[in-house]
Design a protein around this nucleic acid. Structure first.
Length: 471
RNA sequence: GGCCCCAUCGUCUAGCGGUCUAGGACGCUGCCCUUUCACGGCAGAAACACGGGUUCGAGUCCCGUUGGGGUCACCA
């Protein structure tokens, strides 16, 4: 488990570099979190760069969703966000510099020629690696279109001391002469990241495992430029419950969906993501401050982990129980458009409500009985409770409660126990129909609290609504 | 397929040669609490993929097998 690693010897600068072609999904969020945590732990900087090189696929909505998602998760970046597309000229300039130095070359191969090589390799069952006849040609070939390719080293090997994966070695023969500048003059991702990371002073590149192979290509550019090499840390990917790469059906949803649809609290998502692939002894509930204090790369696991909604939900339930009542009420209010009076009621009910919910969505549903208008809808299971006998009991209960001078939980409990005793039934026999009448459901907060919350008039009326058998 | 990486309960993980008859958490089962449902408390079932080494001693180190993942674009 011990990747060869050492504390940083220079001021830390990390970055998160999403491409705005979709929303900020959960894997990206974890990458961002690790980068953020690492920078904060070492008192460094955490930068944000939007990789909008692919103009066709980049959208304003996606950019906003990413920024919004990061803010929600509390991952603040230092300074303004960078946009990769702003540095095109710089990228092209450097590609040409490498060309001038003989570290890159103009390749005039056509798609057909390339395809031919690929097929030949396939026929002979040997690995395909581009072999351009232009590798050592320095003269320009008139106006024919060309791309600029890196003249990658062909001998020796490249070693990366990855902070997570350990020492990884690749034969240079495996690295092909990949494209730096496209025929339309635009930079490829491979060139752009390297240049931007260098220009932004990034010291630690913490990203998904899927980039490990790219790191060797990028290193080739860095060495050609003679720039300092960043420290790499390739974090294993997050998989779906079935072990396959996390896809939409698994939960590679935008973080906005975790907030809006699943009803998660940001601290729960952060905590869950932190524990996915990283651990600190037996600790499960980890505050932001503890995370900053404890987080480091050596403890990051090397194997991919599966996303477990159940555990996230449990964690979310923990944070809900921990959360401030007013905050929770506001969150529910956003989903239900409540009046100030209703929100005030919700805040009072919150202590009872929040121990019963693992998500804000559930919390909102559980609170609905408070705001239902008479006659309230009684669900199937609840109406089954309202037998003729039960309705009679309800009438007796109502009469007793109506005579109460104090409408608080303690008085109500005394009153109801009195009725139960007088009628010779157990409390449960009475409480359940009462619950059905008051909430329309078979589960709810404690029945005395429900009565107190609803108030005398509303409670009495709801009971009255159910006293007579319905036709 | 080539290259790279990974491998402890169903899942997330602790474990960094002896304290491991392998610990915690989620989930699951049972019990307690109890007006329902939760919360909470207690108890339980549940794992070192396999085979070789190294060592006095291996979950921990090495090799292989198997399994899984990643990557092989004028995408990022």
């Amino acid at each position: 488990m011990s990747a060869s690693s050492s504390p940083p010897s220079r001021p830390v600068v990390t970055r998160f570099a999403p491409s705005p072609t979709g929303f900020l999904h959960i894997g990206g969020a974890r990458t961002a979190l690790f980068n953020w945590l690492y920078a904060r732990h070492y008192g460094g900087k955490f930068l944000l760069r939007i990789e909008d090189t692919d103009k066709a696929r980049s959208t304003k909505e996606a950019i906003d969703a990413i920024l919004d998602g990061m803010r929600w998760l509390g991952l603040d970046w230092d300074g303004h966000e960078y946009y990769q597309s702003q540095f095109w000229a710089r990228h092209a300039e450097l590609a040409h510099r490498m060309l001038d130095r003989g570290q890159a070359y103009r390749c005039y191969m056509t798609h057909d020629e390339l395809a031919e090589q690929r097929e030949a390799a396939q026929r002979e069952r040997r690995p395909f690696r581009i072999d351009s006849p232009w590798r050592d040609v320095t003269e320009e070939q008139g106006a024919k279109p060309f791309v600029i390719r890196l003249k990658a080293p062909r001998d020796g090997e490249t070693v990366i001391d990855d902070q997570v994966q350990g020492r990884v070695t690749v034969q240079n023969a495996e690295i092909d002469d990949f494209i730096l500048l496209r025929s339309d003059g635009s930079p490829t991702y491979m060139l752009a990241v390297v240049v931007d990371d260098h220009d932004m002073g990034v010291t630690h590149v913490i990203r998904g495992d899927d980039h490990l192979n790219n790191a060797f290509r990028q290193l080739a550019i860095i060495r050609a430029m003679g720039w300092p090499e960043p420290t790499y840390a390739h974090v294993p990917l997050i998989h779906g419950p079935d072990g396959a790469k996390l896809s939409k059906r698994h939960g590679a949803l935008g973080v906005d969906a975790y907030r809006d649809e699943l009803g998660m609290l940001p601290e729960a998502v952060d905590n869950y993501l932190l524990r996915l692939g990283w651990g600190h002894g037996d600790d499960e509930i980890i505050s932001r401050d503890q995370a900053i204090e404890w987080f480091d790369l050596p403890q990051v696991g090397k194997s991919p982990s599966r996303f477990d909604f159940k555990k996230l939900e449990n964690l979310n339930g923990h944070y809900i129980r921990d959360a401030d009542d007013q905050r929770l009420a506001d969150l529910v209010a956003q989903r239900r458009s409540l009046s100030p009076e209703q929100i005030a009621l919700l805040v009072r009910a919150m202590p009872e409500l929040k121990s019963r919910a693992n998500t804000i969505t559930q919390l909102a549903e559980n609170a609905d009985f408070l705001f239902a208008t008479r006659p309230i809808h009684v669900d199937h299971a609840a109406s089954a409770l309202l037998t003729p006998d039960a309705r009679l009991l309800l009438a007796a209960t109502r009469q007793n409660l109506a005579s109460l001078t104090n409408w608080d939980a303690a008085s109500l409990e005394a009153g109801i126990r009195e009725v139960a005793e007088a009628s010779g039934v157990k409390l449960g026999k009475l409480a359940q129909p009462l619950r059905a009448a008051l909430t329309g459901q078979t589960t709810s907060p404690g029945i005395f609290d429900v009565l107190a919350l609803l108030g005398r008039d509303e409670s009495l009326d709801r009971i009255a609504d159910q006293m007579e058998p319905k036709e």
